[in-house]
Design a protein around this nucleic acid. Structure first.
Lengths: 178, 178
DNA sequence: GAACGATGTATCGCAGCGATATAATCACCT
DNA sequence: AGGTGATTATATCGCTGCGATACATCGTTC
């Protein structure tokens, strides 16, 4: 996931770690942490895999005097990898965490993959919804009051999310045959 | 978190790993995974710490013939530990994951701690809400359409959650002076 | 009697987080 | 000129927790 996010961001421009983290935090901070403890190891991993490379030390006046910073840029393998991750978007793509990340890069995502992700996500949320419904109806009265509250609230919010996803999907479809 | 959940469950009755996991899955499966990959290591950790002990091998007719299973029960230190975790409920208590777990054990939680957790959680969700609001108003038009969708949806759902928490808090208060 | 699904314990490697260390630079104040 | 704190910046540590997988045993069904 982190890997996907970094590759996605580096499509815009070469960046150094701190900046990547700041952009991620701005883009998805409300949904995930994106801590340095994952960032730097992931960058190194990507570099070792040849998906990103360190740009030569900047000598430009603009950056002169600044603390040493490593600016990474995407290689063609990196771009391929990003495309691959999209093409093979599977079950683990539609869980809570990664769906948001994918949505954030939707404008860089082919329309058919967008649709697959949205529908996969919907199925996933619908399954959670059914689990919650079943939990709430089964054994009617003998559930702890607070647990019941939690589940009702969860049910309501999954219902809303399904409705929201339906709107997104409808919008995609209407755009498809413009 | 896992530790807290296990200690909480074991207050009800001694249990073996599989059963603990099943109960957790039933109780909070819609919100967290509770995989075996965490369960068994955590059990061992709790055992080493003296918070739980293995009950002597059951010889009862009921369980005879069943596959070897290790039934754990809470020690007095374990009970203390659970109470401590509640008493010291702090910032990491009100994040998404652990709040649900705590709510599931609210009937075993003192009223004042309940209130502290609910209010902490509310503050935490309010902060996320403010972040999302700020993100959506700032730089008005230049946000990616899908990212905007994600943030609007997030904002709406945090707003709902705050309202829900307010209701829970009000209910607690009304019960307090019954 | 064999196939299958539920019960049951356990481990492996990986992703990601929070806390922390370290440093240089910048903005501001005095 | 000097001090102070916020911001920029890279990096590591230990920990929690997950998914996948392996391996047995049991009950049920065909």
């Amino acid at each position: 996931m982190f890997e996907f996010a970094l590759l996605g961001l580096l499509h815009e421009a070469p960046m150094h770690g701190y900046e990547l983290r700041k952009r991620l935090h701005d883009l998805l901070g409300a949904f995930r942490a994106f801590s340095y403890g994952s960032l730097y190891p992931t960058l190194r991993r990507l570099q070792r895999a040849g998906l990103i490379v360190e740009e030569g030390p900047e000598e430009s006046a603009l950056s002169w005097g600044r603390r040493a910073r490593k600016v990474y840029k995407l290689t063609s393998e990196g771009k391929e990898r990003f495309a691959d991750l999209l093409a093979n978007a599977g079950p683990q793509t539609w869980d809570d965490d990664s769906f948001g990340v994918h949505l954030a890069f939707f404008s860089r995502t082919p329309a058919d993959v967008r649709m697959r992700i949205l529908e996969g996500r919907r199925r996933c949320v619908e399954e959670r919804r059914e689990g919650l419904r079943e939990r709430l109806t089964r054994t009617g009265e003998q559930i702890d009051r607070y647990t019941r509250e939690l589940h009702s609230q969860g049910l309501e919010s999954t219902e809303r999310e399904v409705r929201w996803l339906n709107e997104l999907i409808a919008h995609e479809k209407s755009e498809q045959d413009e």
